[in-house]
């Protein structure tokens, strides 16, 4: 698995121009946007860049050679999740460093940042885990091009479902927010962690089956 981590790390490293551009835009954003937007932007881009390593594996019949190396298919799936989630955490940490620097420079308000940051990070991690748990199986099953179409369809479906839901149950959103506000924070955090673990476990198992069934 060490070799797989090294391969993905080097693929990311070779995109240094893209990485520099992300941070340059992030720093410019930090001057005008709220910390939440900055952390979301950098965290999400980190996640997407790491997800992109799947496309590099797939390109030019690359899977055939990859699986002739001393790895097994299960370890490939596990490494992919660890690498993508790990990279996202590293990018989030970097965005926090930028927030810290901006706070020291007096651009961000320290009190606001400390109040907003924990819930924001939790929400962001939740979004990223959901994105990964849906995107990775789709990418492995259908490849980069087809999976993109399925993701667009899925997003459109979610949008339509949200719209229809809000029309059918207009007060549901407000009730949900009010309910969350009354729930103890520790319970919310617990539910999110359990959800993330269960969702990722299911997603990993689905991916293992997809990869095990693939023939190259």
């Amino acid at each position: 698995m060490k070799g797989l981590f090294m391969k993905d790390f080097l693929i990311l490293k070779n995109q240094s121009k893209t990485l520099l551009m992300i941070f340059a835009i992030g720093i410019v954003m930090s001057l005008t946007f709220e910390p939440a937007s900055l952390v979301f932007y950098i965290g999400m881009l980190g996640c997407l860049l790491a997800l992109g390593t799947i496309s590099y594996d797939e390109a030019d019949h690359g899977y055939a050679f990859l699986f002739s190396l001393p790895i097994n298919r299960k370890s490939y799936v596990i490494e992919k999740y660890l690498f993508i989630l790990g990279s996202t955490v590293v990018f989030l940490a970097m965005s926090l460093v930028i927030c810290g620097i901006m706070t020291v420079m007096g651009i961000y308000d320290r009190q606001n940042l400390l109040e907003e940051l924990p819930s924001m990070l939790l929400a962001l991690l939740m979004i990223i885990i959901v994105v990964c748990d849906i995107t990775i199986p789709l990418r492995l099953k259908y490849g980069s091009e087809k999976s993109r179409i399925y993701l667009y369809l899925l997003s459109a479906l979610c949008g339509v479902a949200g719209f229809v839901g809000s029309k059918l149950f207009p007060s549901m959103g407000a009730k949900f927010v009010a309910g969350i506000e009354q729930t103890p924070v520790i319970l919310i955090v617990g539910v999110i962690i359990v959800f993330a673990i269960v969702s990722t476990f299911i997603s990993v198992k689905v991916c293992e089956k997809i990869i095990a069934a693939k023939q190259f």
Binding site: K7, L10, I11, N14, Y56, D57, A59, D60, H61, G62, Y63, A64, F65, S68, L69, F216
Partner: peptide, 15 residues
């Protein structure tokens, strides 16, 4: 096992 596969190798984007 030492392997050479026709049309398949390491990612072409690495050195």
């Amino acid at each position: 096992i030492g392997v050479v596969l026709a049309e398949s190798q390491f990612s072409s984007y690495i050195t």
